[in-house]
Design a protein around this nucleic acid. Structure first.
Length: 874
RNA sequence: GGGAGCAUAGCUCAGUUGGUUCAGAGCAUCUGCCUUACAAGCAGAGGGUCACUGGUUCGAAUCCAGUUGUUCCCACCA
């Protein structure tokens, strides 16, 4: 034990041990005869940087993995990154723009070259940041969703589902992101209530020849810039106010285009004016109405959200600029009746935060109904457990109402859709140009390779990440359910636990279950631990714009990774949002300091050849029991994914019981030495505690464990986790009582004004004989005359002790309390006896439970008697 | 609009078939202590009508109904 430093300095410790762990490949896993414990990382965006959400996720993941590793499992945590098509592409576009290069000026190949350069430059950052946090990933297995072989798996999957008839191409109203210039899925649209205006516009009735009459109707809209694309004005057929309109036509303001009045029960009579302008090209519902009434589709907004020539006016203006301008024009033309403030839910792109524009376009879709049905069954049957299980409801709801998945994206960064078009517009879907050519020749033998044109679009990122738990082990399996799978896949799949945020339950978790069912005929993981979302201490989401998102690397720099990990776990009970507070990390630092100092204290002790004192024997015995008790509690917490409870159990064991009581008890008096038996036991305790804490705080525990004795190249991370032995709860309980008694004595001494007469008498018969001397030592008092052995009494300061030990207070004022207690106990007896007279309970419940009930009954009877006799005495 | 969840100390949360681990923990607060590992410490203390109202029960933080507040999910009413 050579540690000299007075304070723990993580910067001297963390990088050193992480490098050593890496060098010795302690994180690496290969299939062997042990039970595997497998986890795949939720792959962070390849160009992302570490934020607090990652810290939380990966800390939890690492705790689970390290715990499993110490439990003797073959732990394998596969790291990697996600290509994140929209996010990455928009970053690359922005970077090129800053350099004066426009994406439009580049060919696909040129752009991809830039994108790959970007990836090579930034792709490793987030993974290196995870190493700072102590993540014990098997870095040799690092994967990227656009690795050539993983991409191949994606293409195979597309071809597989296409040939199965699940993938089809269709024209649909999609959510268009005018900034990202791509369609996004329904799930990637965030609806936010946004203040806007309701424009009440006059549409004049046509005289039948395209001229306005003096009659008009009022149509309300939030999007006046789309009136040029109106195809009709719609009323509810039951709306008597507007029956006179039937069969008439109205003129679109400003452009005076004649459009019909139609009737559809979709229109709500009491919303707005009861008149709805139908704009099939720019609204999902209007599109549906248009289909029913065979209305023309007039598209006046281009991919960038600007008005097109078809709008006739304001051509080239951005839609929001056009809105303002057109409102003014309407007003000048006398068509604007009024505007009212209105809050409406507007869809925003999750990636770019641009307002989503509903837009008609040709996209690829994957049929979801059959896949969703199986995926629902996997969770309903418990094959996949969601933790906490409140998410089962939302999961079920989503699975039962799922719509087909739009899997095409109008981007370049991603796996290109393997559809190859013939010149006549027909297409074939194959996993390579060669196979496509062959297939195309079956349609048209004259086709040459250069005649085929591959689809320009790429696949949704989730269409690759849903294969993640399969493709990180075997890239040939996805798309080929008939293949056997390689040794890795057979050994590691299904993975055990998945730790991720609830925000991607549907994006990712549900879809992985689908892919697992389809290709592996088994779910991809057994447990899904859904963390909360990290918020600041005021409950706001972490965001760049609010500036409330701390940089985890700075925190690690300032406090050390162990402290950051502990702090994160301290404020994270499962399923609840995490209200991050730097004070929690300070608490982590405090705990590091406590461990460090406890170690320093023990390091000062020297042994000499002498007999172990009775007090020390009691202390060692007690802490042995206490340690086992805590380990069994921790195991229970881990089995229920109550990580912060497990942590708190270890925290209190170390701080309160070990440092606060045990060390104080055995600490030799100044200038004295310790007996060898106690010192040996103390060192053993300390080592067990280090191992217990290691999964949570890997660095400081390794540092101290290495210093504790020569380790010969061993690491704490591969030591067996402490095991619970049988322990005596009675001894623990007696000690707890002793703690209270001591507190009482201390309190007595502190409050000097308290006279002995006022103090209550406490009998110590409940204690083993040598416990009395323990009490005296800990209370740091001279025995108050009467203390001399079992059965002796000590003056103590609180009534609480008395009640604990005697069950009674010798005090007339307590009479009514006692009576109330008797009444309560009698009621309790009724309940217990009712339970015990129930055949089903007695024969059905475990014997142990029944026995407990009987004991409760007997105890209650005895207690009632005691209380009654006490009452008589009063 | 539809669905789900939540409401316990100043804050964040435990509380596992209704009772005997029932009112708890950590942090924060207050009061004493520089006691020879740690003042980043130690010893104490205060603090809650378990959201509200009814109901079931011998007994309710716990079960039921309603009310209020709040969060999330789904749908978008232009």
């Amino acid at each position: 034990m050579d540690i000299q430093a007075k304070y723990y300095d993580p910067s001297q410790v963390e990088d050193k041990w992480y490098a050593w762990w890496l060098q010795n490949k302690f994180f690496h896993s290969e299939p062997d005869s042990r039970t595997p414990y497998t986890v795949v990382i939720p792959p962070p965006n390849v160009t992302g940087i570490l934020h607090m959400g990652h810290v939380l996720n990966n800390t939890l993941n690492d705790v689970l993995v390290r715990k499993a590793r110490m439990d003797g499992k073959n732990a394998c945590w596969v790291p990697g990154t996600d290509h994140a098509s929209i996010a990455t592409e928009s970053k690359v576009v922005a970077k090129l723009k800053a350099e004066g290069i426009s994406k439009e000026d580049l060919t696909r190949e040129e752009f991809l070259k830039h994108a790959w350069e970007w990836k090579e430059k930034h792709g490793g950052i987030i993974l290196s940041q995870l190493r700072k946090l102590g993540a014990s990933c098997d870095w040799d297995r690092t994967k990227f969703t656009m690795d050539p072989d993983l991409s191949e798996a994606v293409i195979n999957t597309f071809v597989y589902f296409y040939k199965k008839g699940y993938i089809y191409k269709g024209v649909r109203m999609v959510n268009w992101d005018p900034e990202g210039l791509t369609a996004v899925s329904d799930e990637e649209v965030i609806h936010k209530d946004t203040p806007s205006k309701f424009y009440h516009m006059r549409y004049f009735i046509s005289d039948g020849n395209g001229k306005a009459t003096d009659k008009y109707i009022v149509v309300a809209t939030t999007r006046p810039e789309t009136i040029m694309a109106d195809a009709a004005v719609c009323i509810n057929p039951d709306d008597e106010r507007y029956h006179w309109l039937k069969g008439k036509k109205v003129l679109i303001p400003l452009i005076n285009k004649e459009i019909p009045i139609i009737e559809d029960s979709y229109v709500e009579m009491d919303f707005g004016t009861g008149c709805l302008k139908v704009t099939p090209a720019h609204d999902v519902n209007d599109y549906e109405i248009g289909l029913r009434h065979h209305l023309p589709v007039i598209d006046i907004i281009d991919d960038h959200g600007r008005l097109t020539a078809d709008a006739q006016i304001l051509v080239g203006e951005d839609r929001f600029v056009a809105r303002k301008k057109i409102a003014k024009m309407l007003e000048e033309a006398g068509n604007l009746e009024k505007t009212v403030d209105y809050t409406s839910p507007i869809g925003y792109s999750e990636r770019t935060n641009a307002v989503i524009e509903p837009k008609l376009s040709a996209q690829w879709f994957l049929k979801m109904d059959a896949l969703a049905k199986d995926a629902l069954e996997s969770v309903e049957s418990g094959k996949v457990k969601l933790i906490p299980d409140k998410y089962r409801n939302t999961y079920k709801h989503w699975m039962e109402n799922v719509r087909d998945w739009c899997i095409s994206r109008q981007l370049w960064w991603g796996q290109r859709i393997p559809a190859y078009y013939l010149p006549d517009g027909r297409y074939v879907v194959e996993n390579s140009p060669e196979a496509a050519l062959e297939a195309a020749r079956k349609l048209d033998p004259s086709i040459k390779a250069e005649d085929l044109r591959q689809d320009e679009d790429v696949l949704d990122t989730w269409f690759s990440s849903w294969l993640w738990p399969i493709s990180v082990f075997d890239t040939q399996k996805a798309g080929h359910p008939e293949k056997e799978g390689n040794a890795d896949l057979k050994y590691y799949y299904p993975t055990n636990d998945l730790v991720t945020g609830p925000d991607i339950l549907f994006f990712w978790v549900a879809r992985m279950i689908m892919a697992g069912n389809e290709f592996m005929h088994d779910v991809p993981f057994r447990n899904v631990y859904l963390t909360g979302i990290v918020r600041d201490k005021l409950g706001r989401k972490m965001s760049k714009t609010l500036g409330n998102s701390p940089d985890p690397l700075e925190l690690i720099q300032k406090y050390g990774a162990d402290s950051v990990r502990l702090g994160m776990l301290l404020c994270s009970s499962a399923g609840n949002d995490i209200l991050y507070d730097e004070a929690m990390i300070e608490q982590g630092r405090g705990f590091c300091g406590k461990i460090w100092n406890a170690y320093r204290l023990i390091g000062l002790w020297e042994a000499e050849d002498k007999a172990q004192s009775a007090e020390n024997a009691v202390a060692v015995q007690w802490f042995t029991d206490r340690l086992s008790q805590a380990v069994s509690q921790i195991e229970d917490h881990f089995s229920k994914f109550r990580i912060s409870d497990a942590l708190m159990t270890a925290y209190k064991l170390f701080w309160d019981d070990f440092c606060g009581w045990y060390l104080e008890l055995v600490k030799p008096a100044f200038g004295e030495k310790m007996d060898a038996v106690t010192l040996k036991a103390t060192l053993a305790f300390f080592e067990e505690l280090l191992k217990m804490i290691h999964p949570i705080m890997p660095f400081i525990t390794e540092e101290l464990w290495q210093d504790l004795s020569p380790r010969d190249g061993q690491t704490i991370m591969l030591q067996p986790y402490p095991k619970a032995a049988a322990f005596d709860e009675k001894r623990i309980a007696a000690f707890e009582t002793a703690k209270v008694a001591i507190a009482g004595v201390r309190g007595l001494r502190q409050e000097k004004g308290l006279s002995p007469k006022q103090a209550l008498k406490v009998k110590l018969t409940a204690f083993p004989e040598n416990m009395v001397s323990v009490l005296v030592k800990l209370a740091n008092v001279e025995p108050l005359a009467e203390i001399s052995g079992a059965g002796a009494t000590v003056m103590a300061g609180t009534a609480k002790i008395d009640i604990l030990l005697e069950g009674l207070v010798d005090n007339a004022g307590e009479k009514s309390k006692i009576e109330a207690e008797i009444t309560r106990l009698e009621g309790f007896l009724v309940g217990v006896r009712k339970k015990l007279s129930n055949e089903k309970f007695v024969s059905g419940a475990p014997q142990q439970v029944v026995a407990t009930e009987r004991k409760k009954e007997a105890d209650a009877v005895a207690k009632i008697e005691a209380l009654k006799s006490a009452l008589e005495r009063l």
